[in-house]
Design a protein around this nucleic acid. Structure first.
Lengths: 175, 175
DNA sequence: GAAATTATGTCAGCACTATTGACGTATTTT
DNA sequence: AAAATACGTCAATAGTGCTGACATAATTTC
């Protein structure tokens, strides 16, 4: 049998020459890794993980969203959410209110405690972003925002636009 | 203490007005989520996870790196790497060679099979990036690269530069 | 009003990725 | 010879995700 059990090692590095954008792929990995490392340390003090952060974030961003809406945004299952959400409720970071129109629904709202934690988690991330944009003007910022948005699946881009990016009035729309 | 068991719900959304850059924080989350979803589907066919992808990626990017170097790049522990690496070796995606200078070290190299899988995983990600940069020129690309690099911890930025971003010759340097 | 559907909660079990601690072995350095 | 290093491995644990099944309350449909 000439079939060496061990296949031949390839000694040359994979590079962009293969038509693949490894530069940005790798940058994205490192950037996100460090981006999430800041809040991770704070979360550890609470015995929370990244899942808690995400829930807390979106409940603060869209107070009153229902469990189903949250599942849709996070793209996880009900059972995965359950544990995390229960902990956040038990620790008074989030409260549930019965839906006004449909009483089966539970609208999720942050408490003052939950709002404070969300801000504390976002602060180092925002600081990092500001530092990265240090010498950048509005133009560069727009380029980056457009790029990130374009990286999101088109079908899901709607989720982003729901967020009150600029609410001058307090018109809640049709909710 | 008037401690009502249920804390008051906050009904207003958290916004950038708090001095926090929620827009980019959120975009970054969605972008990375979808960015990783493409390879995740391919990996599922192999019974692999994201951890396998990361190992495979860096072994292809820096053939011959040692286990210790890999741990340093991934920022995980030896034990976490062990299973994943073993699987990749058992399935002939990666081979280990004894270090030439220090025989305690195991240099990691991709096989042809491992190289092919790394490319297959990178392809949809690269396609997504290209689509996102569709109408962008070199300037915009540079802005985005600079931003992503600036998001990485300064101490760790060295790891990125190690990567052969532009190798015209095949001079391996001092390795 | 009864039946079907919907929104949510929960239980049980499983998989993957990560963690820490401890120990063994081969090899290099001191 | 002793200490330090690189790596592998065993055992136990945590966090987060999954699927399937089932219960309850409320709404919608017939």
């Amino acid at each position: 049998m000439t079939s060496h059990a061990a296949a031949e090692p390839i000694r040359t590095a994979i590079t962009d020459e293969d038509g693949i954008d490894f530069a940005i792929i790798e940058l994205f990995f490192f950037a996100y890794r460090d981006f999430t490392s800041d809040p991770d340390q704070i979360l550890a003090d609470y015995g929370f993980g990244r899942a808690h952060h995400r829930v807390l974030h979106f409940v603060n961003r869209r107070p009153g969203l229902t469990v189903a809406e949250l599942l849709d945004v996070l793209k996880i299952t009900k059972q995965s959410l359950a544990r995390v959400l229960k902990q956040l409720i038990d620790t008074d970071h989030i409260v549930q209110l019965q839906g006004p129109r449909d009483r089966r629904q539970r609208e999720l709202y942050p408490t003052a405690k939950g709002r404070a934690l969300a801000l504390a988690l976002a602060r180092p991330q925002s600081r990092r972003i500001h530092a990265a944009l240090e010498d950048s003007g509005a133009t560069e910022r727009a380029v980056i925002e457009r790029f990130l948005e374009a990286m999101v699946n088109p079908e899901l881009r709607a989720q982003i636009d729901i967020v009150p990016a600029k609410m001058s009035g307090k018109s809640h729309g049709d909710h």
